[in-house]
Structure formats: C-alpha cells, structure tokens
Design a protein around this nucleic acid. Structure first.
Lengths: 143, 143
DNA sequence: CTTGACTCTGAAGTTACTACAGAGTGCTCA
DNA sequence: TGAGCACTCTGTAGTAACTTCAGAGTCAAG
C-alpha cells in the first residue's frame, strides 16, 4: 500500500507553498490527485517526483510552458534527447541574452551614478539631468 | 502659442505605445493633459520631457514606484542629490544581485546541458534525469 | 457623404504566482 | 461530547508593467 501525502506534507517536503501546488494543478502541470472522504487531496510519490521536477526547472527560470513541454517529452516514448536538447539550448540562449542585457544595464547605472559626487539640490542633480538628456532605448532589459 | 501633440504624435516621438502613455496617466506618472473639443488629449513639451524621463528610467529597469519617487525629488526644492543618490544606489545594488543570480543560472544550465552529448530517447535523457535528481532551490532568480 | 486612420473609455488578459474570505475537516485534549 | 486549533477546500482578486479588445466617437481627405 503506497503511502500518500496531504498537500501540506507535500509542500513541506518539496519546500513549495501550498497555494503554488494548487496553482500547478489548475495550470495542468500536476495531475489531479485522489481525494480523501473529506475531500482532501492525497498525493502519491509520483506526484512528489513530478513536483520536484517542476521546481527544479523553475529554479532554472524556465517558463511553465517550457516545463510542460519537457514533461510531455519525458512521457512520450517517441521523443528523443534531441528535442530536449533543443529546448534547453533555446532557453540557454535566452538567458545568455538577458545576462548581457543586465550587465549593460548595470554599467549604464554605474556610469549615471558617477555623475554625482557632491551634495547639491535635486534641481541641479547631474543624475536627474542625465535621465533627461539621453534618448531612451526600448525598456525591459530584465524580463 | 506653444504647440501641442495628440497622443499618437507623442507616442511616435518618444517611441512608446499609445496604450502605455494612457497607462502612465492612470498610474499618475503623467499629469492629465488638456483636451480638444473632440476630447482628444493635447500634450505639451513638458509632458514630452516627462515621458522621456520616465522611459529612460524604465530602460534602466527602475520600477514605476522608483520613478515616481525620482519625479517627486526632481520637483521638490527641499530635496537634495543625496536622496537621488540613495535611490540610485539601492537600485544598483538590486541589479547587481540579479546579475549575479542570472550568471549562476546560466552556469547551472550549461552544466546541465553538458550532460547530454548523444541522441538517446527522452526516457533515458541525462538532462531530464538531472532535473529529477537535484534538490530544487528557491526559484525566481530572474525577477 | 464615405472611408480610413486615429482617438476615446473600460474591461480583461498576460505570467507566475500570492493572499483573502468563508466554509469544511480532522485531531487532540479536557 | 465539545471546544479549539491547525489544516484543508474553493473561488476570487490582487501583484507589476504592461497589452489587447470591444464598441463608440472624431477628424480629415476624397
């Protein structure tokens, strides 16, 4: 008789909020578990393994859609490593781009910050002036 | 007689979507402009300058709340450079933390990717196995 | 007048959660 | 048995910074 877990137990084991587990079920990342007579969710070891997988992917900043794709590949006997590799490669490329952007942003900020080395009024602030002078680029470098 | 701009003109000048300009007004980052007889918004040069400021700050990944604070400092004759510096420093520290996180994430991904150098079925994929084996950390390194 | 581009407002959607409200369950202890 | 507390349930709304959609009005040119 395989043991089962209530949602709070599972949440503590995997270190994830209860609400997030319910959210993943709604988003169909986690299958619906069995229920107790009192309608409490009863999770299996397989559920726990799947949740661990999802959280590990999230820690690698993969989107829920990407994770869903990986889960499908994992369960499809016809799929290959090639498809997994491709998905991971795309994700790496995206993260690489975002790292470069964040570093540029950091440099821009430090450059801006160096404009001000004295205590003046905000009306004369070289930082604020700098924010007016430059042509803005397309924002959202961090997302 | 200072010229005024309709919203589409302003949007093109500053390279920002029309909907975003309206959004900034709703969020009270931009003051309500005058209106034409047909209820069209009529923006001034001051509006345009303010919008440029906002977009430059966004390009530095500052939150709307931070930008609002800067705008208030800019307009308050009692405020000092010190307050601007403090805000920028806090933001730089935040961005620095996020860059470091993103770099760790990139390394983790590349490490994971190196596990797979052959074409096997997904059922035997070393990447997928790696996503099951490791203990997940708290996600959201990128936000 | 018609047409097409533009404008308006309000509401809803995006992503990945998170919090809240109100009601039900289960377990322990007196 | 009943109380009390921790836990669970569902549905809804909120977060940040937008973005899209629907339906209606304006404006300028042909």
């Amino acid at each position: 008789m395989a043991r089962s877990y209530r949602i709070g137990e599972l949440a503590r084991q995997v270190d994830v909020p209860v609400a997030t587990i319910r959210y993943y079920e709604r988003e169909q990342l986690l299958p619906k578990p069995n229920r107790s007579a009192g309608n409490f969710r009863l999770y299996s070891e397989a559920h726990r393994d799947r949740l661990v997988f999802i959280r590990q992917c999230r820690s690698l900043d993969m989107t829920l859609e990407e994770i869903s794709s990986l889960l499908k590949l994992k369960e499809d006997p016809q799929s290959s490593c090639e498809q997994v590799n491709s998905l991971i490669d795309d994700h790496i490329a995206d993260v690489t781009r975002r790292v470069a952007q964040m570093q540029r942003l950091k440099q821009d900020l430090e450059s801006l910050r160096r404009r001000c080395d004295s205590t003046r009024s905000a009306g004369e602030c070289a930082i604020l002036a700098g924010l007016l002078a430059a042509r803005p680029e397309r924002p959202h470098p961090g997302d």
